[in-house]
Design a binder for these strands. Structure first.
Length: 475
RNA sequence: GGUGCGGUGGCCGAGCGGUUGAAGGCACACGACUUGAAAUCGUGCAGGCUCGCAAGAGUCUCGGGGGUUCGAAUCCCUCCCGCACCGCCA
């Protein structure tokens, strides 16, 4: 949610922001509704002030009269009744007028609120302008050295001296995934991790989780993946991403509330403190969770249909930081959170690049977003011999949201220190993937495959794999 | 699934038709006392919205919505949520 006051003061900033993000929203309509609504509210409030004044002046008198009325008889009674009716006339008239204004406000509010939820956070000035992913800018790359040296963006064959198998071929030959039975159970884009495939998946998650907790002081949390709509709206995934979320339709069966399956642990972690006023001294909050993520992948029909790349259900270790409302601090955390992932990927010896997303590739809720893409030799267009040339695939995404998300979540802290009036301030929030698996298994398998068809397991994962150092080429 | 109870400020908790935006306590802030601290005492301390340069003024909010009333945290209806016990069960 953007700040309505800022919108009124500087609507052009938001018009430009929406245009840069290629998001279509009627800001003028929002301003118009807001103006109408405020006018009605002002009138209503002054009417109400008058009503309250009358109540105080006349109320006791009316109470006294109706008391007398009970005991009175005949002429006396008629006289009292007339007096009472007269006294009541004014407040009653006011009440009608107030209700009329109330109706005006009530009629304007839903449309205004719906529009406000759609207005995106403007991108930061230093985010490059662009229409879509083709406008993204590479910031830097990193490549591992021996034994499994593969240059980011380069040729696996040239570096390693043999043609790489794709992850699809590898999971098949090594017996790591059963796609047929996955599809039988749950339809397209489903899979079953088997044996060492499951162990590798768990190893990645365990390693990543412990990495954040032990090395970087993030607090591990388990959070719900089945949540109420407020959590989806509050975290900014709705209304824009409604199509991407699975709905558990409880109301259709007469139960209390519909629920949604979350597409990321971010929802649970950020929803934790919804409607809370946090203790400033407790900031920044640094949380890490591992959770199953559900995505409908609506609109992606036909894309990445084979393999483990684009699937409806996966597991993800996610990091979230909730800090004070300070741009410099937010920016610093963004860099740190990217640094943790670089450290993790380097320890796994995976080539990657950092991509500065351009304005057109940002979501509604972020001011800035940096993706990390791992090099996947088995992806991309085919060369003349029919083998893939390799391509980058997105494995991580680090967002800086400032107070956009916390404003929606109504998540604040009380500001202390000089210059503050002890008021409440919306927190800032950031999030970044730590590791999403099975997608991360793609580069892991493809980069660490050996000429004999086996796959070397990078050192940090071995403790989580029962100590083995490779997935043996089977049979 | 059944029965019962309940949802009030940062937290706990009183209030059950007007004087209550709300007693009391805790927490927090400032001040006094103290060599310092603790303890104690004093003072302050809900959030949102509107108007205003500001000081400030107005208004809304006691789970949500609706109703009764001149007037509702308090009465009625309804929905949501939570807790307890029983049943069932991983």
């Amino acid at each position: 949610m953007i700040d309505l006051k800022q919108l009124r003061e500087n609507p052009d900033r938001f018009r430009t922001g929406a245009r840069l993000k290629r998001i279509d929203v009627d800001i003028d309509r929002a301003l118009e509704l807001d103006a109408q609504r405020r006018a009605a509210m002002t009138e209503q409030e002054s009417l109400r002030a008058e009503q309250k004044k009358l109540e105080k002046e006349l109320g006791p008198q009316m109470g006294r009269l109706s008391g007398q009325l009970k005991k009175a008889e005949g002429d006396e009674r008629a006289k009292l009744e007339a007096e009472l009716t007269e006294l009541r006339a004014k407040p009653t008239a006011l009440k009608t007028a107030i209700q009329a204004k109330e109706e005006v406000v009530a009629a304007l509010t839903p449309e205004l609120e719906a529009l406000l939820l759609q207005i995106p956070l403007p991108p930061d000035a230093d985010v490059p302008e662009g229409a879509g992913s083709e406008g993204n800018v590479e910031l830097r790359t990193w490549s591992p050295s021996a034994p499994d040296a593969v240059p980011a963006g380069g040729s696996f064959q040239d570096a390693r001296g043999f043609a790489p198998k794709t992850h699809l071929e590898l999971v098949e030959s090594l017996g790591l995934v059963d796609f047929e039975r996955g599809v039988k159970l749950a339809g397209t884009r489903s899979y079953v991790l088997t044996g060492l495939g499951m162990r590798l998946h768990q190893a990645v998650l365990q390693y990543a989780m412990n990495f954040m907790a032990d090395r970087h002081g993030f607090q591990p949390m388990s959070v719900p993946v089945l949540v109420r709509e407020e959590a989806m709206i509050g975290t900014g995934f709705f209304p824009a991403g409604r199509d991407q979320a699975y709905l558990v339709s409880e109301q259709a069966r007469g139960a209390g509330q519909d629920m949604y399956l979350t597409g990321t642990g971010e929802v649970g972690l950020m929803g934790l403190h919804q409607d809370e006023i946090l203790d400033e001294a407790s900031l920044p909050l640094k949380y890490v969770t591992v959770s199953t993520c559900f995505r409908r992948e609506a609109g992606a029909a036909g894309r990445d249909t084979a393999g483990l790349y684009r699937i409806h259900q996966f597991d993800k270790v996610e990091q979230v930081v909730i800090c004070k409302a300070d741009e410099a601090e937010s920016r610093a955390w963004h860099q740190k959170m990217l640094g943790y992932v670089e450290e993790l990927l380097q320890s796994l010896e995976l080539p990657y690049r950092l991509l500065q997303c351009c304005t057109g590739d940002l979501g509604p809720k972020n001011a800035d977003m940096v993706d990390i893409e791992c090099w996947m030799p088995g992806r991309g267009e085919l060369d003349p011999s029919g083998r893939p040339r390799g391509d980058y695939g997105e494995t991580h995404s680090a967002s800086r949201l400032y107070d956009f998300q916390c404003r929606r979540l109504n998540m604040r802290y009380r500001e202390s220190g000089s210059g503050s009036k002890g008021g409440t301030v919306f927190c800032h929030s950031l999030n970044n993937t730590v590791a999403a698996s099975p997608r991360l298994l793609i580069p892991l398998l493809e980069i660490h495959q050996q000429p004999d068809g086996s796959v070397r397991i990078p050192d940090p994962l071995r403790p989580w794999m029962g100590g083995i150092d490779r997935i043996p080429a089977s049979r």
